[in-house]
Design a protein around this nucleic acid. Structure first.
Lengths: 167, 167
DNA sequence: GTTGATGCAAAGAGTTTGCACGTGT
DNA sequence: ACACGTGCAAACTCTTTGCATCAAC
């Protein structure tokens, strides 16, 4: 459970202003993504939502995730394993452990600096950026030995991965 | 045409040592990716290769791109638009223009610094990283006005996009 | 009551795989 | 001649869409 994740942020008013409705599936989908720190895929969200709303369809999950991301309520990232969603919309980077597959949030430490540098060097206007790190997390380093997969979180729904640090 | 791209780097010996063969489709596929700076998708490569080898199959293109990437001869990146391949295997970052869709290489300016910082902050072992910038390129900024798509390079095969800078 | 949202099923895009034949070594 | 590689087609996964019905407002 992401601390503060299930809390009462209020983008609901924003939707209403645009004629969007707060339906039961939609609310649960948002809850699930916010309550997870596993950066879940649509399928992972679907499986969680179905526990509370067994008749929900995968299409509804996709439609809502896409819409919520478009509204800025969620963030969306594509990688080799597919599209992942993140309830944390604050700027931050990611660390993917190549051993256990877990994705950790890391503070966007150097973001502004790197960004300014690229802008001044190329003359381009940088609007946003994405930084991904790959390596071995603390737990997997301690487990020593050669890299070995212990679990594949993108095929599962829950993950107790501790957050690397607060962003 | 990427300068030096079509040149005679020699990973061929490496393959042979592993029992891999230098077939006609394979050589042409590699040529095509190396000669492009458009960061082509498999389909884009396929269309180019077919000009020189009309009977080539898409499956062969996929198999070879994947194999060449695994051998380190090419690099592979997944994003929202699908998987893209890059003949430039030197470390570098990317800038995607949200107006015209072109992908530019940018020097990996801050890479080592950012990397070390994350490692020391999290205690994780960083093995690699990926940095993507999004914004408006020089040409599109000069074209002024609101963001408007002028072309969708991921549906085409050729691109005359100038390189932002040499990595 | 109006209109956006849902569930279901079917379609689509991108990518992978099985298999018999072809071809580099 | 021996394997690896190829073309073809089918399969597979992930995601989107059409449509009648449902439910939020």
């Amino acid at each position: 459970m992401r601390p503060g994740g299930g809390g009462g942020v209020a983008p609901v008013e924003v939707w209403r202003a645009r004629g969007k409705r707060l339906t039961r599936p939609r609310r649960i989908i948002l809850d699930v993504v916010r309550a997870s720190d596993a950066h879940p895929s649509a399928l992972m969200v679907y499986r969680q939502v179905r526990r509370r709303l067994p008749r929900v369809s995968l299409a509804t999950v996709y439609r809502n995730l896409r819409m919520l991301a478009a509204e800025g309520v969620l963030s969306e990232r594509a990688d080799a394993a597919g599209t992942r969603f993140d309830g944390n919309t604050a700027p931050h980077d990611h660390f993917t452990c190549v051993a256990c597959g877990r994705i950790y949030d890391v503070p966007a430490l150097a973001a502004p600096r790197v960004r300014a540098r690229v802008a001044s060097r190329t003359g381009f206007e940088v609007l946003s950026q994405r930084i991904e790190f790959y390596g071995r997390c603390g737990a997997c380093r301690r487990a020593a030995g050669p890299t070995r997969a212990r679990r594949k979180p993108w095929q599962d729904e829950a993950s107790r991965a501790p957050r690397a640090s607060r962003t």
